[in-house]
Write a protein that binds this DNA or RNA. Structure first.
Lengths: 144, 144
DNA sequence: TTTAATTCAGATAAACTTGTCTGAATTAAA
DNA sequence: TTTAATTCAGACAAGTTTATCTGAATTAAA
């Protein structure tokens, strides 16, 4: 459902949120290692998100990325939509352009409901929540 | 969520199911026109589904595709899985490999539930249901 | 038996997504 | 002020999905 790009983005953002303590910047190198993802590609993704104001970045030595308390309140839905658009939360479940309330396909009502639930789930999840995990709850962001 | 290929497949299968009356074959040409999709591409897709036993095909003049009553009972979920695989119904909502019951991500439980609901929706929808529509319920399969 | 209309099979091409390279700009520390 | 470490920007490359081309095989009808 999420593109690979979007999954990288979420994992990277979660890692940065978890490691943004007292102004310490997190470098792309560190991030990509810790979430096992292609360094330059994740760099690009974060540059985009940074331009859109989802996180702070600073150039130069000891530079990197940072997510402050305010930005950590952003929902996963916002990030998903910034990258994949809202197609995941929109449209007919069968891919019919002309499916509507007036001419619903057989799964229209249920699908619409399921879609709304999905959106609610992503919308109410925040980066903050991943910072607040107890040590025994901490989740591996790596692959493999 | 569904790939383009899968959407073509569903729309084509629905069209064929709706027009498979008393042994009459439906040609790729007719199908692709009626659902406005690339003819040769939909041809390929249907060839694959036909090999997998989702519908009948016959070569030669007056040949084409056909969905009998038994095959019309197949669920949309089966077709989706045959084409896109089951990734839509599996895995973590954040894309975490190590998210599990034991170490759930913050949205694990809700997402799992939503995913299951989605599967149920596709699993209980059949091609048959699209044949049974009353005239005023009939849905446009075309684009544009 | 010939012809025309079709599916089938495999190769090729175009478009999109994912990933890499290169060099410039920036910044903190030595 | 120089150096080393970083992000940034734009071009490039590889991989995947979507779409097309070509010719062969098949079949019903003329």
């Amino acid at each position: 459902m999420l593109s690979k790009t979007c999954e990288y983005a979420l994992r990277a953002m979660i890692y940065i949120a978890q490691h943004s303590k007292d102004g310490q910047m997190v470098s792309i190198k560190e991030i990509s290692e810790k979430i096992s993802s292609p360094e330059l590609f994740v760099g690009k993704i974060l540059q985009g998100l940074s331009k859109q104001g989802f996180l702070q970045s600073s150039k130069g030595r000891y530079g990197g990325f940072y997510i402050d308390e305010k930005d950590a309140k952003r929902s996963l839905a916002d990030i998903v939509i910034a990258i994949d658009g809202d197609k995941m939360f929109k449209g007919c479940g069968v891919g019919l352009d002309y499916c509507s309330e007036k001419k619903p396909c057989p799964i229209h009502a249920e699908y619409k409901q399921a879609r709304a639930t999905l959106y609610k789930i992503y919308k109410s999840a925040t980066l903050e929540q991943f910072k607040a995990l107890r040590p025994d709850e901490v989740i591996m962001l790596k692959r493999n």
